[in-house]
Protein backbone atom coordinates (compact mmCIF):
# COMPACT_ATOMS: atom_id res chain seq x y z
CA UNK A 1 0.00 0.00 0.00
CA UNK A 2 1.22 3.43 -0.91
CA UNK A 3 0.05 5.05 2.32
CA UNK A 4 2.36 3.20 4.68
CA UNK A 5 4.28 6.39 5.45
CA UNK A 6 1.22 7.55 7.40
CA UNK A 7 2.22 5.14 10.18
CA UNK A 8 5.51 6.94 10.71
CA UNK A 9 3.79 10.30 10.23
CA UNK A 10 1.26 9.40 12.92
CA UNK A 11 3.94 8.57 15.45
CA UNK A 12 5.96 11.71 14.66
CA UNK A 13 2.90 13.89 15.20
CA UNK A 14 2.10 12.19 18.52
CA UNK A 15 5.60 13.03 19.63
CA UNK A 16 5.28 16.60 18.39
CA UNK A 17 2.24 17.35 20.50
CA UNK A 18 3.54 15.34 23.43
CA UNK A 19 6.91 17.06 23.81
CA UNK A 20 5.39 20.17 25.32
CA UNK A 21 8.56 22.25 25.43
CA UNK A 22 9.46 21.45 21.83
CA UNK A 23 5.93 22.28 20.74
CA UNK A 24 5.85 25.51 22.65
CA UNK A 25 9.27 26.73 21.55
CA UNK A 26 8.59 25.92 17.92
CA UNK A 27 5.42 27.99 18.08
CA UNK A 28 6.91 30.84 20.08
CA UNK A 29 10.20 31.24 18.24
CA UNK A 30 8.82 32.76 15.01
CA UNK A 31 6.50 35.01 16.99
CA UNK A 32 9.44 36.27 19.01
CA UNK A 33 11.41 37.06 15.87
CA UNK A 34 8.54 39.10 14.57
CA UNK A 35 7.91 40.84 17.87
CA UNK A 36 11.48 41.85 18.66
CA UNK A 37 13.69 41.80 15.57
CA UNK A 38 10.85 42.80 13.26
CA UNK A 39 9.57 45.71 15.26
CA UNK A 40 13.06 46.98 16.16
CA UNK A 41 14.41 46.80 12.62
CA UNK A 42 11.23 48.16 11.19
CA UNK A 43 11.59 51.50 12.93
CA UNK A 44 15.26 51.76 11.88
CA UNK A 45 14.73 50.87 8.25
CA UNK A 46 11.83 53.29 7.92
CA UNK A 47 14.13 56.06 9.18
CA UNK A 48 16.93 55.18 6.72
CA UNK A 49 14.71 54.86 3.72
CA UNK A 50 12.11 57.52 4.38
CA UNK A 51 13.69 60.04 2.00
CA UNK A 52 13.91 57.64 -0.95
CA UNK A 53 11.07 58.57 -3.26
CA UNK A 54 8.47 55.91 -3.89
CA UNK A 55 7.85 55.47 -7.63
CA UNK A 56 4.30 56.42 -8.54
CA UNK A 57 1.78 53.62 -8.90
CA UNK A 58 3.80 51.16 -6.83
CA UNK A 59 2.58 49.86 -3.47
CA UNK A 60 4.93 50.80 -0.66
CA UNK A 61 5.49 48.06 1.88
CA UNK A 62 6.79 48.74 5.39
CA UNK A 63 9.73 46.80 6.75
CA UNK A 64 7.71 44.64 9.13
CA UNK A 65 5.57 43.40 6.27
CA UNK A 66 8.66 42.93 4.10
CA UNK A 67 10.50 40.87 6.68
CA UNK A 68 7.43 38.81 7.67
CA UNK A 69 7.94 36.86 4.45
CA UNK A 70 11.58 36.42 5.49
CA UNK A 71 10.56 35.14 8.92
CA UNK A 72 8.23 32.62 7.28
CA UNK A 73 11.14 31.43 5.16
CA UNK A 74 13.63 31.40 8.02
CA UNK A 75 11.32 29.47 10.33
CA UNK A 76 10.66 26.92 7.62
CA UNK A 77 14.39 26.58 7.05
CA UNK A 78 15.23 26.03 10.73
CA UNK A 79 12.41 23.62 11.37
CA UNK A 80 13.23 21.62 8.27
CA UNK A 81 16.95 21.48 8.94
CA UNK A 82 16.22 20.09 12.39
CA UNK A 83 13.51 17.77 11.08
CA UNK A 84 15.83 14.83 10.61
CA UNK A 85 16.97 14.90 14.22
CA UNK A 86 14.19 12.54 15.27
CA UNK A 87 15.82 9.92 13.05
CA UNK A 88 19.05 10.39 14.96
CA UNK A 89 17.24 9.95 18.25
CA UNK A 90 15.54 6.86 16.86
CA UNK A 91 18.94 5.51 15.89
CA UNK A 92 20.52 6.30 19.24
CA UNK A 93 17.65 4.88 21.26
CA UNK A 94 17.50 1.76 19.13
CA UNK A 95 13.99 2.54 17.89
CA UNK A 96 15.19 2.65 14.31
CA UNK A 97 15.81 -1.10 14.42
CA UNK A 98 12.14 -1.77 15.02
CA UNK A 99 11.32 0.05 11.79
CA UNK A 100 14.22 -1.28 9.74
CA UNK A 101 13.51 -4.88 10.74
CA UNK A 102 9.84 -4.49 9.76
CA UNK A 103 8.38 -4.83 6.27
CA UNK A 104 7.81 -1.05 6.14
CA UNK A 105 9.62 0.21 3.01
CA UNK A 106 12.48 2.49 3.95
CA UNK A 107 11.40 5.25 1.62
CA UNK A 108 8.16 5.41 3.60
CA UNK A 109 10.02 5.93 6.85
CA UNK A 110 11.78 8.83 5.18
CA UNK A 111 8.55 10.26 3.76
CA UNK A 112 6.67 9.89 7.04
CA UNK A 113 9.31 11.88 8.89
CA UNK A 114 9.49 14.48 6.12
CA UNK A 115 5.75 14.99 5.92
CA UNK A 116 5.49 15.46 9.66
CA UNK A 117 8.22 18.10 9.42
CA UNK A 118 6.26 19.76 6.65
CA UNK A 119 3.14 19.78 8.81
CA UNK A 120 5.09 21.45 11.62
CA UNK A 121 6.22 24.15 9.19
CA UNK A 122 2.64 24.67 8.03
CA UNK A 123 1.51 25.20 11.60
CA UNK A 124 4.33 27.68 12.22
CA UNK A 125 3.64 29.59 9.02
CA UNK A 126 -0.02 29.88 9.94
CA UNK A 127 0.96 31.23 13.35
CA UNK A 128 3.32 33.79 11.85
CA UNK A 129 0.62 35.03 9.51
CA UNK A 130 -1.95 35.38 12.27
CA UNK A 131 0.51 36.89 14.75
CA UNK A 132 1.85 39.20 12.04
CA UNK A 133 -1.63 40.45 11.42
CA UNK A 134 -1.84 41.45 15.08
CA UNK A 135 1.52 43.26 14.92
CA UNK A 136 0.47 45.21 11.85
CA UNK A 137 1.87 43.16 8.97
CA UNK A 138 -0.02 44.15 5.85
CA UNK A 139 -0.07 41.03 3.71
CA UNK A 140 -2.40 40.81 0.71
CA UNK A 141 -2.83 44.62 0.20
CA UNK A 142 -6.10 45.33 -1.58
CA UNK A 143 -6.56 41.67 -2.57
CA UNK A 144 -10.01 40.23 -3.20
CA UNK A 145 -11.07 37.39 -0.85
CA UNK A 146 -10.58 34.88 -3.66
CA UNK A 147 -7.10 36.19 -4.39
CA UNK A 148 -6.26 35.98 -0.69
CA UNK A 149 -7.27 32.32 -0.62
CA UNK A 150 -5.23 31.58 -3.74
CA UNK A 151 -2.28 33.51 -2.29
CA UNK A 152 -2.36 31.59 0.97
CA UNK A 153 -2.40 28.34 -0.99
CA UNK A 154 0.49 29.60 -3.09
CA UNK A 155 2.53 30.40 0.03
CA UNK A 156 1.86 26.94 1.45
CA UNK A 157 2.84 25.22 -1.80
CA UNK A 158 6.17 27.07 -1.76
CA UNK A 159 6.70 26.28 1.91
CA UNK A 160 5.85 22.62 1.23
CA UNK A 161 8.36 22.04 -1.53
CA UNK A 162 11.09 24.04 0.20
CA UNK A 163 10.65 22.26 3.53
CA UNK A 164 10.57 18.89 1.79
CA UNK A 165 13.95 19.60 0.23
CA UNK A 166 15.58 20.56 3.51
CA UNK A 167 13.84 17.83 5.49
CA UNK A 168 15.20 15.24 3.09
CA UNK A 169 18.61 16.84 3.34
CA UNK A 170 18.42 16.69 7.11
CA UNK A 171 17.19 13.08 7.05
CA UNK A 172 20.00 12.13 4.72
CA UNK A 173 22.63 13.64 7.03
CA UNK A 174 20.98 12.05 10.07
CA UNK A 175 21.07 8.60 8.54
CA UNK A 176 24.78 8.95 7.85
CA UNK A 177 25.77 10.51 11.18
CA UNK A 178 26.12 8.94 14.58
CA UNK A 179 25.21 11.74 16.94
CA UNK A 180 22.80 14.67 17.21
CA UNK A 181 25.80 16.89 17.99
CA UNK A 182 27.13 16.29 14.49
CA UNK A 183 23.87 17.37 12.93
CA UNK A 184 23.75 20.43 15.14
CA UNK A 185 27.23 21.38 13.95
CA UNK A 186 26.27 21.06 10.31
CA UNK A 187 23.07 23.03 10.82
CA UNK A 188 24.89 25.85 12.58
CA UNK A 189 27.42 25.96 9.77
CA UNK A 190 24.71 26.08 7.11
CA UNK A 191 22.11 28.40 8.59
CA UNK A 192 24.26 31.51 8.70
CA UNK A 193 25.18 31.66 4.99
CA UNK A 194 21.78 30.36 3.92
CA UNK A 195 19.99 32.93 5.98
CA UNK A 196 22.15 35.98 5.41
CA UNK A 197 23.06 35.39 1.77
CA UNK A 198 19.41 35.63 0.85
CA UNK A 199 16.74 38.23 0.41
CA UNK A 200 14.96 37.23 3.62
CA UNK A 201 15.79 40.32 5.67
CA UNK A 202 17.03 42.90 3.16
CA UNK A 203 17.17 43.47 -0.59
CA UNK A 204 19.99 41.72 -2.44
CA UNK A 205 20.29 44.53 -4.96
CA UNK A 206 22.93 46.23 -2.80
CA UNK A 207 25.03 43.05 -2.27
CA UNK A 208 28.54 42.77 -3.78
CA UNK A 209 28.37 40.89 -7.06
CA UNK A 210 29.65 37.58 -5.72
CA UNK A 211 27.11 37.49 -2.91
CA UNK A 212 24.36 38.45 -5.32
CA UNK A 213 25.29 35.57 -7.58
CA UNK A 214 25.45 33.18 -4.63
CA UNK A 215 22.10 34.31 -3.34
CA UNK A 216 20.40 33.32 -6.59
CA UNK A 217 21.51 29.73 -5.98
CA UNK A 218 20.20 29.84 -2.45
CA UNK A 219 16.87 27.97 -2.17
CA UNK A 220 15.88 30.35 0.60
CA UNK A 221 15.92 33.27 -1.85
CA UNK A 222 13.51 31.40 -4.10
CA UNK A 223 11.19 30.57 -1.24
CA UNK A 224 11.16 34.24 -0.19
CA UNK A 225 10.48 35.25 -3.80
CA UNK A 226 7.46 32.98 -3.89
CA UNK A 227 6.11 34.04 -0.52
CA UNK A 228 6.48 37.76 -1.33
CA UNK A 229 4.87 37.31 -4.72
CA UNK A 230 1.82 35.71 -3.18
CA UNK A 231 1.70 37.94 -0.09
CA UNK A 232 2.49 41.33 -1.66
CA UNK A 233 1.80 41.05 -5.36
CA UNK A 234 3.96 41.25 -8.45
CA UNK A 235 5.15 44.78 -7.84
CA UNK A 236 5.95 46.59 -4.62
CA UNK A 237 8.47 48.95 -3.07
CA UNK A 238 10.29 48.16 0.16
CA UNK A 239 13.54 49.07 1.97
CA UNK A 240 14.38 51.58 -0.76
CA UNK A 241 14.14 49.09 -3.60
CA UNK A 242 11.56 48.25 -6.19
CA UNK A 243 10.50 44.63 -6.55
CA UNK A 244 8.92 43.30 -9.67
CA UNK A 245 8.35 39.67 -10.43
CA UNK A 246 6.47 38.08 -13.30
CA UNK A 247 4.62 34.77 -13.06
CA UNK A 248 7.49 33.31 -15.09
CA UNK A 249 10.01 34.40 -12.44
CA UNK A 250 7.90 32.72 -9.81
CA UNK A 251 7.51 29.58 -11.85
CA UNK A 252 11.30 29.48 -12.26
CA UNK A 253 11.80 29.92 -8.53
CA UNK A 254 9.32 27.12 -7.92
CA UNK A 255 11.03 24.87 -10.48
CA UNK A 256 14.34 25.53 -8.81
CA UNK A 257 12.89 24.37 -5.48
CA UNK A 258 11.35 21.30 -7.13
CA UNK A 259 14.71 20.32 -8.59
CA UNK A 260 16.38 20.95 -5.24
CA UNK A 261 13.83 18.73 -3.48
CA UNK A 262 14.16 16.02 -6.15
CA UNK A 263 17.93 15.89 -5.78
CA UNK A 264 17.59 15.78 -2.01
CA UNK A 265 15.06 12.98 -2.35
CA UNK A 266 17.43 10.86 -4.41
CA UNK A 267 20.34 11.43 -2.03
CA UNK A 268 18.22 10.71 1.04
CA UNK A 269 16.75 7.60 -0.57
CA UNK A 270 20.23 6.28 -1.19
CA UNK A 271 21.19 6.95 2.42
CA UNK A 272 18.10 5.12 3.68
CA UNK A 273 18.48 2.12 1.43
CA UNK A 274 22.12 1.72 2.39
CA UNK A 275 21.76 2.44 6.08
CA UNK A 276 22.77 -0.35 8.41
CA UNK A 277 21.61 0.24 11.96
CA UNK A 278 22.36 -2.49 14.45
Amino acid sequence: MAWKFLTVYWREMIRFVRFRTQLLSSLLQPALWMAFFGVAMSSNFSRFTSDIPIPPGVIAVDYLTFMAAGVIAMTTLFTSLFGGISLLFDKNWGLMREMLASPMPRTHIMLGVSLSGMTKSFIQVAIIMVFGLLLGVEFFPGFSPLRIVVSILGIFVFVAIFSLGFLLFSSNISMRLESPEGLQGIITLLTLPLFFVSNALYPIQAFPELLQALSTYNPLTHLVNGVRYFALGSEFFAVGARYTSTPTDILLSFSYLVVFAAVMYLLARQAFLRAVVT
Binding site: I14, R15, F19, G94, L95, R97, E98, A101
Partner: peptide
Protein backbone atom coordinates in the same frame (compact mmCIF):
# COMPACT_ATOMS: atom_id res chain seq x y z
CA UNK B 1 10.79 -9.58 8.00
CA UNK B 2 7.16 -10.57 7.73
CA UNK B 3 7.90 -13.99 9.19
CA UNK B 4 9.85 -13.00 12.28
CA UNK B 5 9.36 -11.18 15.54
CA UNK B 6 12.19 -9.64 17.53
CA UNK B 7 12.68 -8.71 21.13
CA UNK B 8 15.89 -6.74 21.13
CA UNK B 9 18.58 -7.05 23.73
CA UNK B 10 18.24 -3.51 24.98
CA UNK B 11 14.96 -1.75 25.55
CA UNK B 12 13.44 -0.58 22.28
CA UNK B 13 10.42 1.40 23.39
CA UNK B 14 9.37 4.91 22.59
CA UNK B 15 9.18 6.36 26.09
CA UNK B 16 6.50 8.85 25.19
Amino acid sequence: RKSIGIVFQDEVLDRD
